[in-house]
Amino acid sequence: MTAIIRKAAEQDLDAVADLFDQYRRFYGRPADLARARAFIGERMRRGESHLLVADLGDGRLGGFVQLYPGFSSVAAAPVLILNDLFVAPDCRRLGLGRQLMEAAQQTGRETGAVYLTLSTAVDNHAAQALYESLAWVRDRDFFHYEWMTGIAP
């Protein structure tokens, strides 16, 4: 299936919020549509991310990818952090994830990012296969660490 991959617009907020809530549940968070809507709405209003959607052309969105701008001190250049990629369960295996990833890569080129980076769960083999098929390389030189502030998400 070929979707139209485009920047999310204000009228997409409710649909994207629903997808974002499903994404959060996929990663073990409780359903909270109000929180999802507030978070996505704020990112859109502030222009804090590149939020691309897969428009199925029938009034539905099949998925989204969200990239956050950042910087590499070592490269002394801008980068993009691919923080979120989600395809609705009924739209999986249709190529939407690949289309969204290709659009994310194009966004990186268009914005002058020297690289895009992402993290995924170690058991998310479907996502890993997609990334590797698009020439993403798993980092073997660095470990990913987190430090929790104690502030509840």
Rank of each mutant, 00 (worst) to 15 (best):
R6W: 02
R25N: 00
S119C: 10
Y27Q: 09
A129W: 02
A129S: 13
G97N: 01
L19R: 02
I81C: 14
F71W: 14
M1S: 07
Q99K: 03
F71D: 03
R140M: 05
R37F: 05
A8T: 01
V79C: 10
I81T: 12
A3K: 03
D32P: 06
A76Y: 06
F39M: 14
A77K: 13
L52W: 09
H144T: 09
T2K: 12
R109G: 02
S133A: 09
L85A: 08
I4P: 00
A126E: 13
A104I: 02
F71A: 12
S119I: 09
R24M: 03
G62A: 04
L118H: 06
R92V: 00
P30G: 04
E42R: 15
G108E: 04
A34R: 14
G112Q: 09
L56K: 07
A76I: 10
T117W: 10
L56Y: 02
G70E: 10
A152F: 05
R45Y: 04
P89F: 03
K7N: 12
E48I: 02
E48P: 04
G59F: 01
S49T: 09
V79T: 14
P153H: 11
A103C: 02
A126G: 12
P89Y: 07
A3V: 05
V137C: 05
D123L: 10
S49G: 14
R109D: 05
L82F: 06
I151K: 09
R46Y: 08
L134C: 06
R29S: 13
T111E: 13
T107M: 12
L51H: 07
Y27H: 09
V79A: 04
H144I: 11
I4K: 02
G108I: 08
F20W: 13
W136A: 13
P153V: 06
S119P: 00
E146S: 14
A31W: 02
L85F: 01
L67W: 07
D58A: 10
Q11V: 11
P78I: 03
R98T: 09
T111R: 11
S72N: 11
A126M: 05
R35F: 14
A3H: 07
M101L: 14
P78K: 12
R29W: 00
G150C: 07
F39A: 14
L33M: 02
A88I: 00
A75R: 15
T111N: 02
H144P: 00
V114P: 01
N124H: 10
L52A: 07
Y145I: 03
L61Q: 05
R37C: 02
L100E: 04
R35H: 12
V65K: 04
A135H: 14
P153Y: 07
D123W: 07
P30M: 01
Y27T: 06
D55Q: 03
A127W: 03
D58Q: 05
I151M: 06
R43Q: 15
T117V: 12
V53H: 15
Q105Y: 00
L85Y: 00
R45S: 15
F86P: 05
